[in-house]
């Protein structure tokens, strides 16, 4: 399972970085999204991978940490997803404004 997740993160990050370096704004925004997927998966994996373990206490009393997933990275990843989503939306607005003002979708605002 670890190797699948690691490859997944690697593919996301790799394609994201490649797209980020492309000259069109649309490619950049997709690249940013892919990079943020990779980052979110990475944060999630930092709580260690466990199958079928809830991140909450099963009932009253002291729980056994070995049967639980770490809740902190899950909380962090939730925050990161929300923030990343908002930033993507904001960048999309800018992208459209740039397209309208400069008449091109090149990241430098001019074709060359």
């Amino acid at each position: 399972m670890e190797i699948v997740l690691a490859i997944g993160i690697g593919v996301f990050a790799g394609s994201g970085v490649w797209l980020l370096l492309r000259p069109r704004t649309y490619q950049v925004i997709i690249g940013l999204s892919l990079v943020s997927y990779a980052v979110n998966l990475f944060i999630f994996s930092m709580g260690r991978l466990k199958v079928g373990a809830p991140p909450i206490l099963p009932g009253p009393g002291v729980g056994d940490p070995a049967t639980m997933a770490d809740p902190t990275p899950q909380a962090l990843v939730l925050t990161a997803i929300v923030i990343g989503f908002a930033m993507t939306a904001l960048f999309l607005v800018l992208l459209l404004a740039a397209r309208g003002l400069t008449g091109t979708d090149h990241v430098n605002g001019r074709e060359d």
Binding site: L32, F42, M87, A97, T102, N108
Partner: peptide
Amino acid sequence: VKAGLHYIPVNLVASSLFLIGVA
């Protein structure tokens, strides 16, 4: 807008690095 088109992605990528480091 042109300056923002550079400023915003650079900082978004920096934020990703920030998260990786924190994680």
